Amino acid sequence: MHKTVPSAPKSKLANGRTVTNLATYNHFNFINSEAIKEAAVKTLRAYGVGPCGPPGFYGTQDVHQTLEADIAAHLGTPAAIVYAQSFSTISSVIPAFSKRGDIIVADKAVNFATRKGIQISRSTIRWYEHNDMEDLERVLAKLVKENARKPLTRRFIITEGLFENVGDVVNLPKLIELKQKYKFRIILDETWSYGVLGRTGGGVTEQQNVDASQVDMIIGSLAGSLCGGGGFCAGSEEIVEHQRLSGNAYTFSAALPAMLATTASATTRMLQEQPELLVALRENVRAMRAQLDPRSDWVTCTSAVDNPVLMLILKEEVLESRQLSAPEQDLIMQDIVEEVS
């Protein structure tokens, strides 16, 4: 009988070699925690594999309510709502609030799931240069001027906490300042920053000392490093309750399996009770980064210093000296991937 072995920091290859596993989001090795496994198995035996229905129709269980309360308490928001799929959370939240005729101003580097939500909303879209707060203010000021005599619409700034495609971090205090100045709301996608940034993994608001209540909607993932599943949106009571009927991915999808809700609650609490986990992660990030950048002659890292996902690009001097085209750059990076796979 074949035995499935969970991914771990060290993996043994078929040829007998033991190597360090860098191709995983299991940053804290929660997946191999015996305490979490025990809690998951206990929940599985008590609740079964899945709730077999949407949250509003048989699907909501006490573990889901506990998880929502745990997330809200961790972030410091009045409420939170849990979705069954991480990807569909942000792409469902956006069209639940922004409709045709409303205005969205978005960072050009936002991830694919966020772009799908923006597309589905059919709102008026304006883009600003990645993480460029001066360009964002220019776009906001122009929009406010253009719509001064038009009927009032809902207006949103959409960005990420830790950018999936670039690896850097948003300037949240400046974003809050612009939001208040031009009367916009903020939708912040923390899919990659929740559980990673901040003293207890509370994300960008914790890392940059911003009151989470100043961010209208905080979206995050419970998969990956938290070893659970699904996603969440945190905000005011009104923001959360509106989604229970208007969030398509919440209303029309089967609820998150109870086992994954229990696991996510456990790991969220562990990060708060054991901040040394975050300290160890950052030491690992620094050690790995020191091996790649600046020691490498070929690549540099664009990721923020606390980002465990290291985004590598070819150095400008390499591109200039070798006059590499975009297809040639892709081939080189693919060779690197195949070499380390």
Rank of each mutant, 00 (worst) to 15 (best):
L226K: 12
S221K: 08
Y250C: 02
G230V: 09
N284K: 15
M259R: 05
H242R: 12
A258Q: 03
R244C: 03
A290G: 04
A254V: 11
F232E: 10
V210D: 13
M270N: 02
W298C: 08
G230Y: 12
A258I: 02
I239T: 15
T300R: 12
G247H: 02
L278F: 02
L271D: 00
A212I: 10
M217V: 15
M270F: 03
R244Q: 13
T300H: 13
T262C: 02
A280C: 04
A287C: 04
N209L: 07
S236W: 06
Q207T: 10
M288E: 10
R244S: 04
D293M: 07
A254K: 09
R295G: 15
G228A: 09
E283L: 13
Q272V: 07
G231N: 09
E273C: 02
F232G: 05
D211R: 07
A258F: 00
G247M: 01
L222Q: 05
S253N: 11
M259L: 08
G228R: 02
A212D: 08
V279Q: 10
S246W: 12
A266G: 02
V215F: 13
R286P: 02
M217C: 15
I239R: 05
G247K: 02
L292C: 09
Y250F: 14
S213P: 04
E237N: 14
V210P: 12
Y250H: 03
G230W: 10
L278K: 04
T267P: 01
A290D: 11
A261D: 00
G247F: 03
G247T: 05
N248R: 10
E273T: 10
T267W: 01
A280F: 04
L222M: 14
R286L: 11
C227A: 15
A255C: 03
S296W: 05
G231R: 04
C227F: 09
T268Q: 01
E241L: 06
F232M: 09
D216H: 15
E238P: 03
S213G: 08
T263W: 00
V210A: 11
